[in-house]
Amino acid sequence: MTQTHQAALPSSRVITLGGGCFWCTEAVFVRVKGVLDVESGYCNGHVLNPTYRQVCEGTTGHNEVVRLVYDPQVISLHEVLEIFFVIHDPTTLNRQGNDSGTQYRSGIYLSDEADRAVAQQVLNEVNAAMNGRVVTELQDLHNYSAAEAYHQDYFEHNPDQGYCAFVVAPKVQKFLKTFADKVRHA
């Protein structure tokens, strides 16, 4: 399965999420029914159009993210965020598994102020369920740029690469098992 790259519907919505390595997050969301497009990128840093190498150095302030375009008539923002919070650990500051650094922070980045109330509600629910340990930031989206082409559809093109086989694949399997009713069927 690859990114859908469908034309956005007039009613489509956009949300940008940071849940650790964008390869993991992208690999899940390309499988979600109602998600029209997934793009790996960088946001909320102070350098215009940073490179992957710059972001990994941890000096740009950027986060590795996925920008989702979704159809709210098929999947709601609440449901998108439920999936997001299950597929990563929102309680570890600047870390997901062995990946550490500010570029791996948990974050929800808004393109539309109208999404703030739903995002805050889900964040509050998750935080309550996790005894106040959630470190996910909720911010307006700033300075977004797409990641280099080789990062797009990375898992689909490199399923046998070590990181993909041992880190990405288990997250995809967790999604498939936990959210079977939300899986896109080709």
Rank of each mutant, 00 (worst) to 15 (best):
T2W: 13
Q3D: 11
Q6F: 12
Q6R: 13
L17H: 03
G20A: 11
F29A: 00
V38A: 09
S40K: 02
G41S: 07
N44F: 12
N44Y: 08
V47C: 02
V55E: 01
C56K: 08
G58E: 03
G58Y: 12
T59W: 09
T60P: 05
G61D: 06
N63M: 10
E64W: 09
R67N: 06
L68D: 00
V74S: 04
V74E: 04
V74G: 00
I75P: 00
S76P: 03
L81T: 03
L81N: 01
E82L: 11
E82Q: 14
V86P: 00
V86L: 10
I87T: 06
I87Y: 02
D89H: 10
D89M: 13
T91P: 02
T92P: 05
N94H: 14
N94K: 13
N94D: 12
N98K: 15
G101F: 13
Q103T: 07
Y104P: 04
I108E: 01
D112H: 13
E113V: 14
A119D: 02
A119E: 01
Q121C: 07
Q121L: 12
Q121H: 14
N124V: 07
A128C: 12
A129C: 11
N131A: 14
V134H: 06
V134P: 06
V134R: 05
Y144N: 04
S145I: 12
Y150E: 04
Q152M: 04
D153S: 11
F155N: 00
Q161R: 13
Q161A: 09
G162T: 13
Y163V: 12
F166Q: 13
V167F: 07
V168R: 02
P170C: 09
F175Q: 00
F175I: 05
D181V: 09
V183W: 01
R184L: 15
H185P: 01
